[in-house]
């Protein structure tokens, strides 16, 4: 891998880190998700910097940016766009909605009704939108970053499994550590810094990076580790259902991107293990109450499945 690409990626992390303090790992994961051509779901309580992260991300990547605040009364047409009758030309003209952009930030995605949420499905999975019988491609690269509040908060509709599966990764930010928080408190509003961020990437560079990820080598021994992992979730009684093949593909793609971020051109089992939680946790469900949530299930997976056989 060319060293200038590596340097750019490091610079991107650093730049975002200026705004999102002490969350290097989450920044890396978000970057990894972008490089793996996936969409990112950030789940956390309000006020820990979800939106800040996405905004910083949008600026530094230099992509066209649209932000939507989902509410319970939002309709699909509000996202996709509408055809409006133009009296001058005596015809309908399509007015594209905010979804037609390169970087879409969906704030509080689980506040919208499932009907509206599903309007995002096709766009995220197939990078295209079909409205009134016409299929319109979305700009490339296309990256959706969504934030959601935990399901136990009021006024939320839980995301359907199919929608969750569309997100390559789900991460949570968590409260900042003491030192970072102090810096934040002392430094004033981080949004002031936001406007100073430089755009280090652009669409072409991102597509080149995404293509470079495809060239990362995954040997059989890693593939069989992935198969052992998903096989375990399908057989073990702790899991309500096993991981899908799409999950396995996602795991490999993310591990490749992660390896690239580490400056390697091959995937180690360590990469799989590091991306396993963000990739798989939101796709797993405990078979019974009291068996723990996503992270516990991932921990079980990591400790039970042998890396080398």
């Amino acid at each position: 891998m060319p060293s200038d690409q590596l340097a750019v990626l490091a610079a991107v992390s650093d730049e975002i880190g200026r705004v999102v303090l002490g969350k290097d790992r989450q920044v890396q994961q978000a970057l990894c998700c972008l490089l793996a051509r996936g969409h990112l779901l950030i789940e956390d309580v309000p006020g820990v910097g979800k939106t800040t992260l996405s905004q910083a991300f949008a600026r530094v990547t230099g992509l066209d940016y649209q932000r939507m605040q989902f509410t319970s009364d939002l309709l699909p047409a509000d996202i996709l766009g509408v055809s409006v009758f133009d009296r001058n030309s005596n015809a309908f003209h399509f007015h594209p909605g905010p979804i037609f952009t390169q970087f879409l930030l969906v704030d509080e995605i689980n506040r919208a009704s499932p009907k509206t949420q599903s309007a995002l499905l096709e766009a995220m999975a197939e990078q295209q939108v079909s409205i009134e019988g016409e299929t319109r491609p979305l700009p490339q690269p296309y990256f959706v970053m969504a934030t959601q509040n935990p399901w136990f908060q009021s006024g939320t509709f839980p995301l359907p499994e199919s929608q969750l599966d569309r997100f390559l990764m789900r991460i949570s930010l968590g409260y900042p550590d003491e030192r970072s928080e102090r810096r934040l408190l002392a430094g004033g509003d981080p949004r002031a810094v936001l406007s100073q961020l430089r755009a280090l990437l652009n669409a072409e560079k991102i597509i080149a990076l995404q293509n470079a990820v495809d060239a990362i080598e995954v040997r059989d021994s890693v593939l069989s580790y992935v198969q052992r992992l998903i096989g375990f979730t399908r057989q073990d009684s702790h899991y309500a259902f096993g991981l899908s093949t799409r999950a396995a593909l996602a795991l490999i793609q993310c591990a490749k991107a992660w390896a690239m971020l580490q400056g390697r051109d091959y995937v180690l089992p360590d990469d799989i293990q590091l991306v396993l939680e963000p990739v798989a946790a939101h796709r797993l469900k405990a078979a019974a109450d009291g068996q723990g949530d996503g992270p516990d299930l991932i921990k079980r997976l990591l400790s039970q499945v042998p890396v080398v056989v």
């Binding site: 180690l268 089992p269 293990q273 890396v307």
Partner: peptide, 18 residues
């Protein structure tokens, strides 16, 4: 790994070589 386990440092199944 088994040889090292006999020296008292077993590798856990889910532990990557690194």
């Amino acid at each position: 790994c088994a040889a090292l386990a006999r020296k008292g440092v077993p590798r856990r199944a889910g532990e990557t070589p690194d």
